[in-house]
Design a protein around this nucleic acid. Structure first.
Lengths: 342, 342
DNA sequence: TTGTAAGCGTTATCAC
DNA sequence: GTGATAACGCTTACAA
């Protein structure tokens, strides 16, 4: 079986010969450069079509000193999140010459110190960094040092003038509390997220701010540590429901944990939302699969990825930088929240 | 802000000069070619390390006429599935010079006829095709025509001598029926999968074979068409539960539909597994998130992707082809199945 | 075991 | 507007 393509592909020279022009003119046409007479242009395009010519990527990269490859680095374990991320980036890249290389890491420490090597080994033109990787100081410093253009998604750490796209986690968490208080809840528990993700802190802050805004005191007994996983949510739910004066509503810092809380309630014979309201965060696929459907914050992951990619492209192509961008969130009210039990 | 790397990267010539050898020797070292004295080798490696030399990907691709890029094409909407696929492929690629380009398609028709263009535009050395794309005749024919090496994951259509890795869907569905019959069930409903996925047919066949093996007659009323989505499973579940002589067990052809069936049961006040047993297929993340946890067939997607990638690499690198490979499945018994109600 | 020379197929420079 | 011609950094023959 043939290992390489059976046919010898035609090159820029073949097209130039066929069109009766120089290779430079063909190059101009394929790079949308000015100074080509429309007639010449058409002749080149026709010759190229006849010869089924496609520019050689490697040659372009070598001569142009750019690969048209961008990397998407992440260490998030949630498939929903990852796929949304990829979709957003690919959405922006569609129709461009750029291609996407996915770079998943097991954890931030696996990425630290290897970014530059990976970028060079893969020949990347730029990189999009998703949380929590984009908050890893070592990773950012390394990228900064080697001068590779990059953009960050929902970063919470500063110290970088690279473009980034974010959502206001704090404000969103406040909106969650507003919603619950509006339903009459006053004992609102919270399952905190993995502290290594900076989002966890912002969401907790918003929770506190929301309580304060309504004149409610924060009760440390109602705050349980989670880890952004289903199981940690389940355990946190059990702990909260076992409380003597248990909460009537629980705000889980992400959907996976909210699903865990609902399972804990199911097991404990506590009906959701009649006896307990549960709110998630992210609006991942899970939110629509658990029963009842999750009231949650829709985090525009896909949009953020698209915009971050866009920012990266303008950084690479035009050296223009749109430093910060804040995308709107949305509270999606579904079946898991209801009025406080009488 | 600098658009390109600030520093001028060192090249093979720099390393050759520093080590006092020719560039060919440096090339030999970096390509693990024979006929390099260990001492020379060490000298080259030292010089390379001192100069922080990394071979230029584009130059290697151009001169070597290979990109070390392989594509992973799929059109599956399930994030869990997609991420498993990617993980498997990346697992095999780890430590190799190859990089992975993800190629998601909205549907098979979007892929048909564009494969060759994509492969050339991206400069791919080969392609891994996931179902149901790998069963699209036009796509396969196109790849075959342009001579691009490819491997298929769980294909069900023939007409290709490309390597593939599969699981025995039919046998697995039989095992599901065995399990249910073993629990005493005789009225076993089925939610069929999307007929455009060939797996749907194989799973249905296995269901029928299982019934026959136990001397049970197939009842058309117990067979409802689904579409591999949560909602279609939900609707199918409602239909089956509304039957006058409703089934005591339902085999959904994938996990998403099984989750839908469970929701339908929940709504209808039918307890799972006490009054109804539900089985899924795939063992996707959803299987562990719904309540009760799903009894399902663990489909080794990740392993299949890894092995398919492996087969592709040997096809590209050694022109060796390991045509077919069958990976074992596993019936994972969780909480959604139980003895037939008395 | 090592080196020389000739590409690989583009883009960049600069002249016309 | 268009075209020579020189890079780009490496691999592949083929010599030595």
């Amino acid at each position: 079986m043939a290992r390489r393509q059976a046919t010898r592909h035609s090159t820029i020279t073949d097209v130039a010969d066929a069109a009766g022009v120089s290779i430079k003119t063909v190059s101009r046409v394929f790079n949308d450069e000015p100074n080509v007479r429309p007639l010449t242009r058409d002749r080149v395009l026709k010759a190229a079509a006849d010869l089924d010519y496609h520019p050689n990527v490697a040659a372009r990269s070598l001569a142009g000193r750019r690969s048209f490859l961008i990397g998407l680095a992440y260490e998030n374990p949630s498939p929903n999140y990852v796929v949304d991320l990829q979709r957003g980036a690919l959405e922006r890249l569609h129709g461009e010459r750029y291609r996407l290389l996915v770079l998943p890491f097991d954890d931030a420490s696996a990425a630290s110190g290897k970014m530059q090597a990976i970028a060079r080994a893969s020949g990347l033109d730029g990189m999009v960094l998703a949380p929590p990787l984009c908050d890893d100081p070592a990773t950012v410093a390394e990228l900064e040092a080697c001068g590779l253009p990059y953009a960050r998604i929902a970063p919470t750490s500063g110290g970088s003038h690279a473009p980034d796209v974010a959502m206001d986690d704090r404000e969103a968490a406040r909106a969650v509390v507003d919603h619950l208080v509006g339903l009459g809840h006053t004992r609102i528990g919270v399952v905190r997220g993995d502290p290594s993700h900076a989002s966890a802190g912002a969401r907790l802050e918003g929770y506190h701010a929301g309580l304060a805004a309504h004149g409610l005191a924060a009760d440390p007994a109602l705050e349980v540590q989670g880890a952004y996983t289903f199981v940690s949510g389940y355990e946190a739910g059990r702990a909260l429901l076992a409380l003597p004066d248990r909460p009537t509503a629980i705000f889980a810092s992400n959907d996976d944990m909210a699903a865990g809380v609902i399972n804990a309630a199911y097991e404990a014979g506590v009906s959701v939302p009649d006896q307990l309201s549960v709110v998630g965060f992210d609006d991942s696929n899970i939110a629509s699969v658990v029963w009842p459907r999750l009231t949650t914050i829709h985090q525009p992951i896909r949009d953020m990825a698209r915009e971050a990619t866009s920012a990266l492209l303008s950084l690479i192509d035009h050296e223009e930088t749109v430093p910060h961008q804040m995308l709107p969130f949305q509270l999606v009210i579904r079946g898991s929240t209801g009025p406080v039990p009488a």
